[in-house]
Simulated assay, not measured.
Amino acid sequence: MAASRPQEIVDEEHERIIERVCAIDVAKESGQVCVRAPGEQRRSSRLWTVKATTGAVLELGEQLLREGVEKVTVESTSDYWRIFFYLLEGRGLDVRLVNTRDVKNVPGRPKTDKLDAVWLAKLTEKGLPRPSFVPPRQIRVLRDYTRMRVDLTRERTRHWQRLEKLLEDSLIKVPAVASTLTTLSTRDMIEALIQGERDPHTLAALVRGRMKSKHPALVEALTGRFDEHHAELAQILLDQIDALTGQIDKLTTRIDQLLTDLPPGRPPTPAMAPTRPTPTGRG
């Protein structure tokens, strides 16, 4: 029986070896760059160090474009990868971010650290590294604003907590009656204390809304030993709170604008969606 003719199976497009690739092993102050491309007889690697500065990375981007590099892989080391990823992506290169753990667990990796970039380039030319998700620039900008607002909101909360401890030190128990210091009524009473008013009946008369029914309890809570040093520290804390509130409001306005400008069909993920600060009470 005659042997059957061998069947030729052509590689799929995604299985082809990418001819010109670059890989960057990132550190804090520099990146180890490896470019793999066809040589005179066989494929070869070129390895050199590029400083992690804007000028140096932009120059690298121009060089990679001149050499026709088709794909760049950047290792996600701490936050050091950002300058390489953002600037090379901005130059129009096809840049992918890969998790360090994923590429180092592939069998056959060399043990010599300075060969990491070469190993990553060899994986890149075969299309093996699984890219990590890097959101588009508009989402990254939005995320920066929302994260800043979260940080400032937490800092403002810590100042409110410091103010509450200061009142406790002065034997003023308003938080036990009002439940929160963020209402307009408690703000009026604290400002009156700072300005020198010490009569609990006068202070309790400043309340508005539903808190008026708590007048007897407020008189008792406002009977304490609030002195000049408490007043000075309380004013400093209120000034800090007001400054933070202004910054948070500014960020909120900017975030609303960025959300409006997002392209249709690309809403922020829940982790990036902004959360409005708790509104000031009216009691």
Rank of each mutant, 00 (worst) to 15 (best):
V134W: 07
Q138E: 14
M211V: 12
G61H: 00
K214I: 10
R147Y: 00
E164S: 11
P270T: 01
V72N: 05
T280S: 13
L163I: 03
D151E: 11
P270E: 02
S170L: 03
I241V: 14
A56K: 05
E164F: 00
L64M: 13
H14N: 13
E168C: 01
L206A: 08
V103E: 09
Q161C: 03
D169F: 02
R137E: 11
V35Y: 00
K173C: 04
I24M: 07
K212W: 02
G92W: 12
D188M: 11
V72Y: 00
R187Y: 06
G281K: 14
I236E: 13
E70V: 08
A178N: 08
R210D: 12
V103Q: 10
C34P: 02
L203R: 09
L218D: 04
R282T: 14
V103L: 11
E19G: 06
L87P: 04
L222G: 02
S78W: 03
D199L: 10
K111M: 01
E197R: 13
T260R: 13
R143Y: 04
V207Q: 04
V219G: 12
R82V: 15
V69N: 06
E13D: 09
T252F: 03
R109F: 07
R158Y: 01
T186I: 01
A221W: 01
L97E: 02
I24G: 02
T278I: 11
L258T: 07
A234K: 04
G196D: 08
I18N: 08
I24T: 03
Q41M: 09
K71D: 02
R66S: 11
E220H: 05
A178G: 11
A56W: 00
R91T: 11
L64K: 05
D102T: 00
S4Q: 10
S170A: 15
E220P: 00
D79W: 03
G39P: 04
F84R: 08
A221K: 03
G55C: 02
T275N: 06
P200G: 13
S4D: 09
D102R: 00
K28Y: 01
S213A: 14
T202M: 12
V69W: 01
L47K: 11
W119G: 09
